[in-house]
Design a protein around this nucleic acid. Structure first.
Lengths: 199, 199
DNA sequence: CGGTGAGGTTAATGATGACTAACATCCTCG
DNA sequence: CGAGGATGTTAGTCATCATTAACCTCACCG
């Protein structure tokens, strides 16, 4: 029972436990759903048992809230960065697509939890997450509006959600194709779908 | 507390309670997840209280199993019918798309539960559902293979899953667009995405 | 040294929830 | 009428679970 965990220098350990827990919890939540996972399960997944988690998070819901807040922030910030760095709408859309694809393929559990478990986040954080999600969508809609001026925003918003559905499906159909083949395929399909939506 | 429920003739009631329960449960499961819904919740949703459900289903998991089995069967049967009725691969694909879109827009809760809760179905039924889902996908892949011969089936399978992701996202982005506008948009986007995947 | 704080541990505690039991209704069919 | 079945009801029972309490350990800083 030594639990030596490959001794790291204390300074390199900064917050490592928290993120380790968040990672494990994300995988479990993605697989069995928020209510299908117990605190004990999460503890076991990181080699401690149950109530140790309360040294790092104030509760199960708080853990979920932090997880989703972090994802929303990363997605939104990355999108904002990429869009302002792009020189035209074409490139901006490419950058948005790449960002979403990288994230979906790189963090399948987080993406899954992100679009299933918002309902279990308690109210203070819930609103904040929704806000970031909305901003993220608007980032896409703005770029698409520039690219397809005649197209009503409501239609572009629906198309954006549909493309998220397409891209976020990769976690579930994992294994069909290696990621090196999956990424370009998703990019091509998403682009084609958006072009069609824009008319 | 009379609960008169607009008296129906007994014969017209055949199995109505079961399906009423399944409908309510689907909505609840879609909104809060299998483990986030109690038997008591489901009972309340159909105007009875809790344990009355055991007169109709042997338990919560059995209820879910029946729900998912029914969906898989309907999807697969409808797909098989439509494909054999079609005169060529083009029309077959159209028919498959229309079927999936109708179902996703017509039964959003069922679609949501169908691709989230398989993991909570106990083993005898789980295998059966998986089998039907696989057959359903193969129905699509067969049609697509005919339409895009050079394209490796693994790629077509991945593309099919992606399109399901796109089409099944409609329940979540509900309200963006009226269904009369949503259906053609989804059809157009899915077609374009598949054409791109087929090269 | 000594104490303090971070991170764990194992036992409560208190809800909640699935499922069962025992007991009504009431409709139907003989 | 009267037995039977279908369908409910309420009150357990037994697990599971989130959360808290009370107690350890040990690295580090004075």
């Amino acid at each position: 029972m030594r639990e030596v965990t490959t001794a790291q220098t204390p300074t390199r350990n900064r917050g490592s436990r928290r993120t380790e827990i968040l990672d494990a919890a994300a995988r479990l939540f993605a697989a069995r759903g928020f209510h299908g996972v117990s605190i004990e399960d999460i503890g076991a997944a990181v080699g401690t048992s149950g109530p140790a988690l309360y040294r790092h998070f104030s509760g199960k819901e708080a853990l979920l809230a932090e997880m989703l807040l972090d994802v929303s922030e990363r997605l939104h910030a990355s999108a904002a960065d990429r869009v302002t760095a792009a020189s035209d709408a074409e490139q901006a859309l490419d950058a948005l697509l790449n960002g979403q694809i990288e994230f979906a393929l790189g963090h399948p559990a987080l993406i899954t939890v992100h679009d299933r478990e918002l309902g279990n986040v308690p109210e203070p954080a819930r609103r904040q997450i929704r806000r970031l999600q909305r901003l993220y969508v608007e980032e896409w809609v703005t770029v698409l509006s520039e690219l397809y001026p005649g197209c009503p925003p409501a239609r572009l918003r629906a198309a954006t959600h549909a493309v998220f559905g397409l891209l976020n499906s990769t976690p579930h159909s994992a294994g069909e194709l290696p990621p090196e083949a999956m990424a370009p395929l998703m990019r091509a399909m998403a682009r084609a779908a958006l072009a069609e939506a824009g008319n």
